[in-house]
Amino acid sequence: MRAEMPGPQKPLELILARNLLTSVTTPAFLVARDGTLLFYNEGAGALIGRPFEDIGQLGIEEWTRRFGPFDDGGEPLPFAELPLTRALREGRPAHDELTVRSADGVKHRIAASAMPIVGAASGASGAMVIFWPVDDEQAREVTTGRHEVSR
């Protein structure tokens, strides 16, 4: 049997983070140190209306263009102000309330917490962003796993 020839293997801490996110219903993104969206779980897929398998990895400009976040006036927030960016820059958790847009164009108000991921061998390799819809009913559905990812 021949091995596949993939891109570079991800650091172990990102592999384990992805495994963890796959196993929880809380919506979450996994982002590389350079801001590339590496993965999001089914909970996040339910909120933004598309499963990760349909989207795949995206550069930061592309995923922020698609999903936001946006300010109250609908303008994209500067990347430097996102909790994710602050977590990566400062090496500590960051939290904020933001507006994101799902694939069907509907905007959702969310609370987002970003945590840097620092590996034993590779140092700061990315961040995990966990978020909750501020809307109570939707939050309840997502956090209890009673949601469906549209395909």
């Binding site: 021949r2 091995a3 993939p6 570079p8 293997q9 991800k10 592999i15 992805r18 495994n19 796959t22």
Partner: peptide, 22 residues
């Protein structure tokens, strides 16, 4: 394979892949 399906996972997400390749 903890928490994931090794058969479906992208190779770059498999622990030990580069070490063991071929």
């Amino acid at each position: 394979g903890l928490g994931t399906d090794l058969a479906e996972l992208g190779s770059e997400w498999i622990s030990g892949f580069d070490l063991a390749r071929e």
